[in-house]
Computed example of a mutant assay.
Amino acid sequence: MTSIATFGAVWTWAVILISQLRFRKSLSETERSQLAYKMPWAPYSSYLSLAFLALVIVLMAFSPDTRIALVVGPLWFVFLIAVYYNKGLHKKIKCSW
């Protein structure tokens, strides 16, 4: 159970890091200079963090106790995506405000 939670945490942090990289890449140099928080060593710190997360996943593959998470985790995401589309949640909702 812990290894499945670890897989979920790794996935979450990877998505956060990728989102942040894409967000900062979409900004102009002027917009980047006006950000309130200057990320140290950007973007290299994000790439290093992603590499560390990949290392965690690789290390999980070496242990039989944690290897199950590498099977269950992706299957869980496929299940969630199937439910998301099956329920029609992917359709945009019109806001009245």
Rank of each mutant, 00 (worst) to 15 (best):
P43G: 00
V56T: 12
Q20G: 02
G88W: 12
R67T: 15
F23N: 04
Y47I: 11
T2I: 12
R22V: 01
S3D: 07
S45V: 07
I93R: 13
W13A: 07
T6I: 10
V78L: 13
A82S: 15
H90N: 08
S3T: 12
F77K: 10
D65A: 15
L75N: 13
T12P: 00
L59C: 11
K87T: 13
S3K: 08
K87D: 10
V72K: 14
K25P: 00
I68E: 13
W11G: 09
K38Y: 01
T6G: 04
V58W: 13
A82G: 12
S3G: 01
L21I: 03
I16H: 08
A14M: 05
T12W: 04
P64A: 02
F7C: 08
W11D: 11
F79E: 14
M39S: 07
I18L: 14
Q20I: 06
T12A: 06
R22H: 03
S46K: 02
K92S: 10
P74Q: 04
Y47E: 06
Q34G: 02
R24H: 03
M39R: 07
F79L: 15
P43R: 00
A36T: 01
L27F: 07
I93Q: 13
K25E: 01
L89P: 04
P74A: 06
A82L: 15
M60W: 09
Q34H: 07
A61T: 09
G88M: 13
L17I: 11
W11T: 11
S45F: 03
W13I: 08
G8N: 09
L48P: 05
C95S: 05
L70Q: 11
I81R: 15
H90C: 05
L35V: 00
L75Y: 09
Q34A: 06
F77G: 07
L35S: 05
